[in-house]
Computed example of a mutant assay.
Amino acid sequence: MEQVLRPIYQERASQSNTLGVILVEKREEQSNVTDTFDTVLLIIVKEAEQPVFTKHYLYEGNKVALHTVTEKLIRKWLLVGSNKKVVDWIFFGKVLFDRNEFLHKLKIELQEFPYNGRKIKTGIQFSKLIRRYLEGKEYFDKGSYLDAYNHVVDSLHHLGRLSIIDSGLYPEVTVWAQVKKIEPAIYKLYEELVTSNEPIEKRLELLFLASEFLIHSRTRDGAQHILEVMQTKETWSIQELHDHRELINYSVDLEVFVEYLVDKGYIQVEPVVAKNDRIFHRHYKADKDALEIEQ
């Protein structure tokens, strides 16, 4: 297949904007990694009008997908964890072209997983965990157990990814295989939730109790990134937090996360007088005393 596709990727490799080309073949045991395609060509470029441009090809009954993706979007996917297949492609795909060792350096970066990168990724995953946990708890309290179950499964996925990130690794597509080795206790919780013969209400009740402890024990690490950002300025409006170049990656989970940290005493609310002296803007500041106590 590589020889058949050579004219396609060589044309792009000759362009100065192209940073690297990776070939990924479907593995029978993991066809989802290539979205069921037989072959994927990933072309990473420095800049493009469209962050992602995709083409599909057919050759003698084989399906081929070509994705041209900007470096900026690749790095966002790796940071936010919104496209887990890319980690697999970069680690296990065959490098066909590598300008100035871009892909080689990227692999080393992923393997070493810089400390600051871990802090940001931990914060993003923790904010997602908080949203799913709180929404699941709300459904549980209302008696909507199937909706609660879906949210708890998602929250356990985020908890599992956090354990992998804490160990200095990148969460891969087969995240539970990693969790089983790194943190068996979280794997056991997941296993009990999905395989237990207990009534769903009982399973959820036990999971919420266990999850509450696990979440509490990880709160300071999960909040570290956002609190360090907030310490660079005395107070913040919610829009200023949304607009910050690093916090923008928290997306729709940011406000729920901020409220959770207010409730836990990590963030203080600072009322600021608005035009109407009976209404106040709600600004936020990192609670330095709470940080010192935790440290």
Rank of each mutant, 00 (worst) to 15 (best):
N197I: 05
N197E: 12
N197L: 13
E198I: 04
E198P: 00
I200N: 02
I200Y: 03
I200H: 05
E201G: 05
K202Q: 13
K202V: 15
K202H: 09
K202G: 00
R203S: 06
L204Y: 07
L206V: 04
L206M: 10
L207V: 05
F208T: 04
F208V: 05
A210H: 10
A210V: 08
S211E: 12
S211H: 08
F213C: 01
I215V: 15
H216G: 03
H216W: 09
S217I: 12
S217Q: 10
S217F: 01
R218I: 04
R218G: 09
R218Y: 06
T219S: 15
T219M: 15
T219L: 11
R220D: 14
R220H: 14
R220Q: 09
D221T: 13
D221V: 11
D221L: 12
D221M: 12
G222A: 07
G222N: 06
G222Q: 06
Q224S: 15
Q224I: 00
Q224W: 06
H225V: 04
I226R: 01
L227W: 05
L227H: 03
E228V: 00
M230L: 05
Q231M: 12
Q231D: 01
T232C: 02
T232H: 10
E234R: 14
E234M: 03
T235L: 03
T235D: 08
T235K: 14
